[in-house]
Design a binder for these strands. Structure first.
Length: 442
RNA sequence: GUGCCUGUAGCUUAGUAGGUUAAAGCGUCGGGUUGUGGCUCCGAAGAUCGAGGGUUCAAGUCCCUUCAGGCACC
C-alpha cells in the first residue's frame, strides 16, 4: 500500500499510482484532521472524491504519530494530546475521536487507535502498559465503531482493523495477537515494528508470530518495508503492508533494482531464501498450500533467509543512489527487468492513445476484503504495453526505452521534482511486482 | 596617467585590537531513511588566504612592491 499521508501519494497523479498495480493507498487521520479537517473532506465528498483515488483507502488512526511526534504529545488513559506544530494549539485524539474522524474521512479500512512504544529504555519500561492500554483502547474503538455504524448497510460500512503491540517481547506479542484476534475486528495489524529494531529482531518476531495468525482474518504488518522485509513478511503470513520507503527513498534518489541470482546450484539450493527462490522457479510451489496457512520454511542458512541477497553471486534486491556520479552518463534505465512506466515508456506517437491500456495482470488478494465505496470514474491510465516485457511496443514494434539513469540523475541534481515522481513510480511498482509474483505462487 | 576600493574553498561570504589546526552557507562527493512534520538527515573532500618581499616570537590581518577586477578624476 503506497502511503499518501495527506491524501496524495507524494508527487504522483492517481493514474500513475494505479498504473503501478497498487490496489489500495493510505491516508492519515492525524494529518488530515489537522489540515484540511475531516469536515472539509466530508463536504468535498469524502476521501475518494476528494483525492480522486477510486480504489480502496486505508486510514491510519494517528497512533503512530503518538510515537513519531513524541516530543509534542502527552498520553493519558483518555487519549493523547498533541501540540499543533503550526500554531501550538492543543489537539486531542482519543479512541472514540479517531473512529469518528476516520468515518468522516470515508476510508474503506480504518485502524484502531493504539499506543506505540519506542525501543529505548523509556519505551521498554512501558511496553506492557502500552499493550494493555492498546487493548483497552481497542475495546473502546470497537464500541464506538459499532455505535457509529449501526445504521449503515453492510456494503457501506468500512472495515475495522485492530492493532497488536508488544515491542520485542514475545509473550506480550502473543497475548496481544490473541486478544486482537478475539475482538470483533475485520483484520489484525502488527504495530510497533519497524521502529528502530534490527532487521533480525523484526524477522525473528515475524517468524514467531506467523503460526499464531487466525487464517480467517487479514494480517497487516504496519510500516514495513523494504523489498527484503516485504518478502520476508509475505513468507510469514502477512497479507498487507504499507511503507513510506518506496516513495521517500525515491524522492531522495534511491531506487530498488533486482539483480538476478545466476547461481544454478545442482542441489537446487541457490542462495535465495525459500519463496524468493521459488519465484525463480514458480512451478515448484504452484498448487501448494496458501502462503498464509503455511509460512514458507526458512532455509537452515539463516543469513540467506533474512536477506534475499545471494552470497554466491550477489544477486537479489539491491538499491542504487541515482545522485551518484557514476550514473552521469548512464544510458540504461533503472532496472531493465522492470515494466514500470519509468523504465519502459514509449517515446513515440504510441504514447498517445488508448491502445496502450495496461495489460498487466493485477493480483487481487485484498480486493475481496475491501468494498470500495466510490463510484467516481477514473480514466484508464496510459499503461504498460502488452509486450513491455519484450521491450517493444506491441503496436508499432518500436523499442520501449525508459528514462535513463543519466536523465534521472540530472533531474535530481537540478532539484526537479519529476525525478522523485518517476522513481516513486518505479519503487512502488517494484514492490507490487514482488507482491504479484508471490500471488502467482498461491 | 593619478587617486580610491576589492581580491579568503567551485560560488557567496565570515574572520573582530596580529595569537591554537582559517569558519559558514550553497555546490561537489558518499551514506542514511521502514503505520512520512520536514525535496530531508549524517558524513567527507575541498583554501600554499591573488603573487613576491618585509616587520614580528607570531601575519588572512601591519608595511612595501607587483598582478587582476572595479569606481572616480584627468
Amino acid at each position: 500500500m503506497p502511503v499518501g499521508t495527506r491524501g496524495a501519494v507524494k508527487g504522483l497523479h492517481p493514474c500513475e499510482v494505479k498504473n503501478t498495480g497498487a490496489q489500495i493507498i493510505l491516508g492519515n487521520t492525524y494529518h488530515l484532521h489537522l489540515q484540511p479537517g475531516e469536515d472539509t473532506i466530508k463536504n468535498l465528498g469524502g476521501l475518494h472524491d476528494f483525492t480522486r483515488w477510486d480504489g480502496p483507502i486505508l486510514t491510519d488512526s494517528g497512533g503512530f504519530q503518538v510515537f513519531s511526534l513524541a516530543h509534542i504529545r502527552k498520553i493519558t488513559e483518555e487519549g493523547v494530546t498533541f501540540k499543533d506544530p503550526r500554531n501550538g494549539d492543543l489537539i486531542s485524539l482519543t479512541p472514540e475521536k479517531a473512529m469518528r474522524i476516520q468515518l468522516d474521512l470515508g476510508g474503506d479500512i480504518i485502524m484502531a487507535f493504539d499506543d506505540v512504544v519506542s525501543l529505548d529504555e523509556a519505551g521498554k519500561k512501558r511496553t506492557e502498559e502500552a499493550v494493555q492500554r492498546t487493548h483497552r483502547w481497542l475495546e473502546r474503538c470497537v464500541t464506538e465503531f459499532k455505535r457509529l455504524t449501526k445504521d449503515m448497510q453492510d456494503s457501506e460500512r468500512p472495515l475495522l482493523f485492530g492493532i497488536a503491540q508488544g515491542g520485542l517481547n514475545r509473550e506480550l506479542r502473543a497475548k496481544s495477537i490473541e486478544f486482537v484476534q478475539s475482538c470483533d475486528v475485520d483484520g489484525v495489524a502488527i504495530g510497533g515494528l519497524s521502529v528502530g529494531e534490527t532487521r533480525e529482531e523484526m524477522h525473528d518476531m515475524l517468524e514467531y508470530l506467523a503460526p499464531l495468525y487466525d487464517p480467517d482474518k487479514a494480517h497487516y504488518l504496519m510500516g514495513v518495508g523494504d523489498p527484503i522485509d516485504f518478502r520476508f513478511a509475505i513468507e510469514h503470513g502477512i497479507d498487507m503492508v504499507d511503507c513510506v520507503m518506496a516513495t521517500r527513498n525515491a524522492r531522495h534518489g534511491t531506487a530498488w533494482i533486482h539483480k538476478p541470482c545466476t547461481c544454478t546450484n545442482k542441489t537446487g539450493k541457490a542462495g535465495l531464501s525459500g519463496a524468493s527462490r521459488a519465484i525463480s522457479d514458480s512451478s515448484s510451489l504452484r498448487g501448494s498450500r496458501t502462503v498464509r496457512e503455511v509460512p514458507l520454511a526458512r532455509t537452515s542458512q539463516k543469513n540467506f533467509a533474512t536477506s534475499t541477497e545471494c552470497k554466491t553471486c550477489g544477486g537479489g534486491d539491491k538499491k542504487i543512489n541515482l545522485n551518484n556520479q557514476q550514473f552521469t552518463e548512464d544510458a540504461t534505465v533503472i532496472d531493465p527487468e522492470c515494466d514500470c512506466t519509468t523504465c519502459k515508456v514509449p517515446h513515440h506517437t504510441c504514447l498517445n492513445g488508448a491502445e496502450l491500456r495496461s495489460a498487466t495482470p493485477v493480483a487481487s488478494s485484498t480486493s475481496s476484503l475491501v468494498r470500495s465505496s466510490t463510484t467516481s470514474q477514473m480514466p484508464e491510465p496510459p499503461g504498460i504495453t502488452e509486450q513491455s516485457s519484450s521491450g517493444h511496443c506491441f503496436r508499432c514494434g518500436e523499442a520501449l526505452t525508459g528514462f535513463s539513469r543519466g536523465f534521472l540523475r540530472h533531474q535530481f541534481k537540478v532539484n526537479e521534482s519529476l525525478a522523485g515522481s518517476l522513481v516513486s513510480i518505479h519503487n512502488i511498482r517494484y514492490l507490487n511486482r514482488i507482491a504479484e509474483q508471490y500471488y502467482a505462487l498461491r
